[in-house]
Design a protein around this nucleic acid. Sequence first.
DNA 1: CTGAAAGCGCTTACAG
DNA 2: CTGAAAGCGCTTACAG
Lengths: 348, 348
Amino acid sequence: MTVSIRDVARHAGVSATTVSRVINDSAPVAKDTRRRILEAIESLNYVPHGGARSLITRKTHTVGVLLPDLYGEFFSELIRGIDLTARRNRHHVLVSGSHSDPAELEAMLRALRGRVDGMIVMAPDVNAYPLLDRFGRAVPMVLLDSDPDASDLPAITIDNFGGARSMMRHLLALGHRRIALLGGPEHNRDARERARGWRESLAGTPLGAESAALVFAGDFSELSGYAAGARIAALQPLPDAVFAANDAMAVGCLSAFREHGLRVPEDIALAGFDDIPIARYMNPPLTSVRVSIADLGARAMTRLVSLMGTGSTAADWRRETLATELVVRASCGAPTQRFRNPTREERR
Amino acid sequence: MTVSIRDVARHAGVSATTVSRVINDSAPVAKDTRRRILEAIESLNYVPHGGARSLITRKTHTVGVLLPDLYGEFFSELIRGIDLTARRNRHHVLVSGSHSDPAELEAMLRALRGRVDGMIVMAPDVNAYPLLDRFGRAVPMVLLDSDPDASDLPAITIDNFGGARSMMRHLLALGHRRIALLGGPEHNRDARERARGWRESLAGTPLGAESAALVFAGDFSELSGYAAGARIAALQPLPDAVFAANDAMAVGCLSAFREHGLRVPEDIALAGFDDIPIARYMNPPLTSVRVSIADLGARAMTRLVSLMGTGSTAADWRRETLATELVVRASCGAPTQRFRNPTREERR
DNA sequence: CTGAAAGCGCTTACAG
DNA sequence: CTGAAAGCGCTTACAG
């Protein structure tokens, strides 16, 4: 049924060895022999079997990408950045989402043995660290957004704290004082760091003590932002501003505000985090902290490729921190900027 | 370095055959022998090599997913649906985006030989069909949104035409007459079918003849919708409504309208297609055609699993058409519905 | 320039 | 209940 290298060899009247050599261009082959082999490949419609190749070369040219979820633009952008860089390095991407609990994560980690050359893992759950540490020693692995204290595996981390600080600086500079936090999942490191930035920014202000009353829980989804928005809208007095720990929640929150007749930013300011592609198209356009999510993925992949190249899993232990950038739009009451078209680079 | 089944066998004082039997539970093994083997596995930290296993069993438990792009919520949802169904069937997902030209697609199709048991391919470019037809005969393959006339491979297709018709019926019922089309990529089948729905809906109306002047070209991106929106806003008289061929463009278009001081739906109505998660959170919430993108992915995966199960690539040639559902929100001037919270099912 | 042999890490008849 | 042998489809020294 399926044609193998031996069939080609037989057809061309040579050995499999020689066929292998012309396929991989790994050794000189007589011109005429090469021609015959090429013809045989063509006429038999032969395509080398990647799996068999991997077994002997010990390279799958595939990387595993394990994510907590696949929902929303954040992951979409992340995968896009990873895929782009992967194909540039001639690698395939095996992706898997929703590893809610460590047991599931471990099962996947095991299942991937012999199928991938390395992995990119995003595991917000702190309980996963011992597991990752163990596997990360056996196979090249790059962590996304891990806790620097919990693991010394190579990792790319967003500067969540710095980003939150700069957003808070911006809000305070605009005169907002009572700034509510729309927080993310409790065990999520990104969410925690962003919350910490909010908290410490408020520490020096008169609100400092009172701030705890202005914390609203969300789970990074639009829906949770919508729900929190409804609660916030019912507050009196209204806070001056809401700092949402991600854009998806800000989007939901904005929608709730609108339904409750609140104008943004006139009645209340609203800021997000991530700068997902849709943020600039909101009404009003959303002030956010740009993370360049695709770049995050691209860097993780680049790092992984170099790790896999050296063969060592611990050769390069530096932790890379991705700078963020405050993107001021209309949702917080700052002087309106002219709408800036995204460049092609930003879209792609 | 890496531990194999032979190491385990040696450690337990048995043959590799027996070890294999306890791992796969494929034949009875003496209780005590089993225990020794389990201990050896534990102490050596042995994990079976998936690649080697695949070679002999001829099953990789992996499916390849080839998409034209990975940008935006549509693909995010699609992959999520595929991944969910894949893991439920104990399969891995190898994903790859941006196969702009057929040559690139072919390279990927070849590279996947021996790495996957089947493929889900979305190739809007009509030129790819001969290629797909050839490969689709060698390996189980399900097409996404392919042209029914171009290939008889199994395919899941969105009812783009029907969806567009029902949207147009809705717009016409609301009294809109001059309805502009914000079209998608020229060679994209979804875009074409949606355009056809628009065109045929207008055929019976007074506008019929004039309608060509109301076609605006886009490429499915927010940015192209934004650009078209600016052009439409400059029109006089303004159209009554704009039917955007997807939500992403509608989002961009909406943003442009706002900047030009146009109110939606008071000054002009706006409708989209796809009902991406963000649509309901727009201001105003976007009337759209729900496609249940995740379900599209899930069905493709389900179909592929059954194809792979039967082993035949052509056993099940029925083409499945996915019904759409008109989702009326505020952007077209219909009586405002109460905001409906998405159910958990819809979010996950 | 070419080929026979060994082997990557497994599983599967076959025989006992 | 257990093992020796063959083999999945390749590549890689080794020898010529």
